[in-house]
């Protein structure tokens, strides 16, 4: 009885604070996801609505048709390589910023593109890559024939790297800031040459940030439909485009839901692997 008196006060406070948020997430995140799962088991009815019977039809369709498997393969492929490119560009940048005397300014210079509207950043690449664009103006000025850069897979890669670079640099920078540089000296002291010393003493310290940055780049890159839609010009169909088509032109919500479930499963798998290697603190680093 006494427990319930002291405990009920805490319980009441817990309800007041957690209640609204938990309720909202239940209503607008959890239930819609369950709905999506149910929809993925239904079929396309008349006029594009959902209808019975229940079944795994949509999943079977996805996994038995090589076209769809190719789409998912291409999504992962493009996501992976653009993430790798992002790392190549972003990894040294994080070190440069962390070592600079004006790191606040440089950091702001990464944050500005980060906060610039996503569509504008994608749009800018059209302006640069299109037939009458900047690159071709440059090429033709030398008397060369104009290149067919847009729409293309190359453009999708470029815009992906561009879009997600700040997402990668910011968490990595946080890790670089915390590096214990004395380990480098220790490695020198033990006779390691510079490259080896960096690899053994410094690189491991950046691995958590690298993982977080990788995930923050890879997941949206796999799930995107805007970049491929605008810069691939219908030539590049990723899993995101497939989903979007099912909910717009194709009007097959059931199949679209199934593809979404598959995408989500893919992401949660990645997240699960990440949580296993990085633990709870790693999850916080993602934000």
């Amino acid at each position: 009885m006494r427990e319930s008196r002291g405990g009920s006060e805490r319980l009441r406070l817990a309800w007041i604070t957690v209640g609204p948020g938990a309720f909202w997430l239940l209503l607008f995140v959890l239930i819609p996801t369950l709905l999506m799962f149910v929809a993925s088991l239904l079929s396309r009815g008349d006029f594009g609505t959902l209808s019975l019977p229940l079944g795994l039809r949509n999943y079977l369709r996805f996994f038995s048709d090589p076209v769809y498997l190719e789409i998912i393969g291409l999504s992962v492929w493009i996501g992976f390589w653009s993430t790798l490119l992002t790392i190549v560009l972003g990894y040294p940048l994080a070190f440069y910023i962390a070592g600079s005397k004006r790191k606040q300014v440089l950091l702001l210079m990464v944050i500005i593109p980060f906060f610039t509207n996503f569509l504008i950043r994608v749009y800018a690449w059209i302006v640069i890559l299109q037939k009458e664009g900047l690159v071709n103006a440059f090429i033709t000025a030398f008397g060369l024939p104009p290149a067919d850069l847009f729409p293309s897979t190359f453009a999708v890669y470029l815009a992906s790297v561009y879009t997600y670079l700040p997402f990668f640099v910011l968490p990595l920078y946080a890790a670089v800031e915390r590096i214990d540089w004395s380990l480098l000296e220790a490695a020198y002291d033990l006779g390691a040459p510079p490259v080896r010393a960096f690899w053994e003493a410094i690189f491991p310290q950046t691995v958590p940030g690298l993982f977080a940055g990788f995930l923050l780049t890879f997941i949206p890159a796999v799930g995107t439909f805007v970049i491929s839609d605008l810069l691939g010009g219908g030539k590049v169909v990723l899993i995101g485009n497939l989903i979007q088509q099912q909910f717009t032109s194709a009007q097959n919500w059931a199949f679209g839901s199934a593809v979404s479930m598959i995408l989500m499963a893919l992401v949660l798998l990645g997240l699960w692997l990440y949580a296993r290697t990085q633990g709870e603190r790693g999850m916080d680093q993602l934000v």
């Binding site: 957690v18 938990a22 997430l25 607008f28 995140v29 959890l30 239930i31 819609p32 996801t33 709905l35 999506m36 929809a39 995930l215 997941i219 949206p220 796999v222 799930g223 995107t224 439909f225 995101g240 989903i243 979007q244 909910f247 919500w253 679209g256 839901s257 979404s260 995408l263 989500m264 992401v267 949660l268 997240l271 999850m283 993602l286 934000v287």
Partner: peptide, 27 residues
């Protein structure tokens, strides 16, 4: 369910926005 709630938050942040968009559309 505290841990469940925390993982729901992480998931919301990480899951591609298209999944969130269509699930809301369905709702």
């Amino acid at each position: 369910l505290q841990n469940g709630l925390r993982y729901l938050l992480y998931t919301t942040v990480v899951v591609p926005d298209i999944v969130m968009g269509i699930s809301l559309l369905l709702l």
